[in-house]
Simulated assay, not measured.
Amino acid sequence: MQNDLVAALDIGGTKIAGALVDSAGRLVVRAQRPTPAQEDGDAVMAAVAAVLGELAGAPGWERVTAVGIGSAGPVDASTGTVSPVNVPGWRDYPLVDAVREALGGMRPGGPTHRWPAGGLPVTLVGDGVAMTAAEHWHGAARGRANALCMVVSTGVGGGLVLDGRLHPGPTGNAGHIGHISVDLDGDPCPCGARGCVERIASGPNIARRALERGWRPGPDGDATAAAVARAARAGDPVARGSFERAAQALAAGIAATATLVEIEVAVIGGGVAAAGEVLFAPLRAALRDYARLSFVQGLEVVPAQMGTDAGLVGAAAAVRARSGAPAAAVEAPAPTVP
């Protein structure tokens, strides 16, 4: 129904964000808490429950018909569990059950209102899949039948749209391009493999590589990938080389994905994408070297459009995709409420 709302959660290592999202993708109520990532699992869940509690006290809660969760991963949607790399207290944590339990203690919106039988349905996906759902609904992949959407930040994640539909896979992790190996004898990755896209193209690894090869931060001491991007933009050859290496790894992973499933566009967001043409120019050039077969040569690479709201909008979109609602049919980009 058009009046229904989804309670959306975006869970990461830094913050836990929540929102009530309407059928047009607008965030009509927001809530947020810092993630106590270094505390135990109960403390992290208490922060999630606090966000849900704030949403439950807001106008519109009585219209909520489902919950969508986009979480840092790995996630396992088949069991409702999460094991975020950046939240050590959660290992095979039963997040879906814990959210249902938290909701059970909250009034559904008035003395005459009742949850559906069995409680609210809860949909769990990885954060890369949530970003993909958002970009397909209202962002740079809108109207595309086959797309890869990526988050390039402290890690590298992603998700797929195939035949016009979100494709999360059985566990909610499909499209996790960050752990495709593109350098068979490369550096060990925390995932256990070698030469993964993430090990080469993530922000911390762009900065690490630049420092190892002689780049030095400015007087402010900023040694992040954003600082490397500024140096590259100013013409520093070492900084530029580190971004070119990241772009090469991304291009190899994108080309491999396109060859397997014939995507037509790759959408790239996240903090590293904010480098703009410092990243995108060498990425497009490298892609021409890797995407050689006729059916992948027309592949486009574009920046993401949804920004920091992608996780929340995407969690709601994933609910709609699961229910079969035509989320992509909305005609206008969704504004948000500050």
Rank of each mutant, 00 (worst) to 15 (best):
178 G>Q: 10
112 T>C: 05
282 P>L: 07
44 V>K: 03
319 V>P: 00
69 I>D: 10
40 D>S: 03
47 A>G: 08
119 G>S: 13
280 F>G: 06
72 A>P: 00
108 P>E: 15
67 V>L: 07
2 Q>P: 02
10 D>M: 03
252 A>V: 08
281 A>N: 11
191 C>P: 01
81 T>I: 03
135 E>K: 03
176 H>F: 00
279 L>E: 11
222 D>M: 02
290 Y>S: 04
332 A>L: 12
14 T>W: 04
243 F>I: 03
228 V>L: 04
107 R>W: 11
93 Y>T: 03
317 A>N: 04
258 A>R: 06
171 T>M: 02
158 G>K: 08
197 V>K: 03
106 M>P: 01
129 V>G: 02
218 G>Q: 14
335 P>L: 13
191 C>Q: 14
139 G>Y: 11
186 G>F: 00
297 Q>N: 12
304 A>M: 10
10 D>C: 02
2 Q>A: 15
303 P>Y: 13
198 E>M: 00
255 A>P: 01
257 T>A: 04
326 P>D: 15
121 P>F: 06
73 G>I: 05
80 G>K: 09
249 A>V: 02
113 H>E: 15
310 A>W: 05
238 V>R: 06
214 G>C: 05
32 Q>V: 11
274 A>V: 01
22 D>F: 06
330 V>M: 10
277 E>R: 03
204 P>R: 06
335 P>N: 15
135 E>W: 05
256 A>Q: 12
26 R>T: 12
171 T>K: 10
180 I>Y: 05
205 N>L: 04
241 G>R: 05
73 G>V: 06
83 S>C: 01
211 L>Y: 06
134 A>Y: 05
272 V>Q: 03
109 G>C: 05
112 T>F: 09
23 S>V: 13
290 Y>N: 04
270 G>T: 11
24 A>L: 14
128 G>S: 14
150 M>F: 07
257 T>N: 04
73 G>C: 07
264 E>Y: 06
105 G>E: 14
223 A>W: 02
205 N>G: 02
40 D>F: 00
56 A>K: 01
320 R>Y: 12
266 A>N: 11
318 A>L: 10
103 L>V: 06
302 V>T: 14
215 W>V: 01
320 R>T: 07
164 G>A: 09
327 A>F: 13
87 V>T: 11
289 D>G: 08
92 D>L: 03
151 V>F: 04
146 N>Y: 06
127 D>V: 01
319 V>A: 07
305 Q>V: 13
91 R>P: 00
222 D>A: 04
297 Q>Y: 07
100 R>E: 13
301 V>D: 06
43 A>C: 05
113 H>P: 00
153 S>H: 08
171 T>S: 10
312 L>H: 07
201 A>Y: 00
314 G>D: 12
305 Q>H: 15
205 N>H: 13
309 D>C: 02
153 S>K: 06
175 G>W: 03
19 A>N: 05
276 G>I: 12
329 A>M: 12
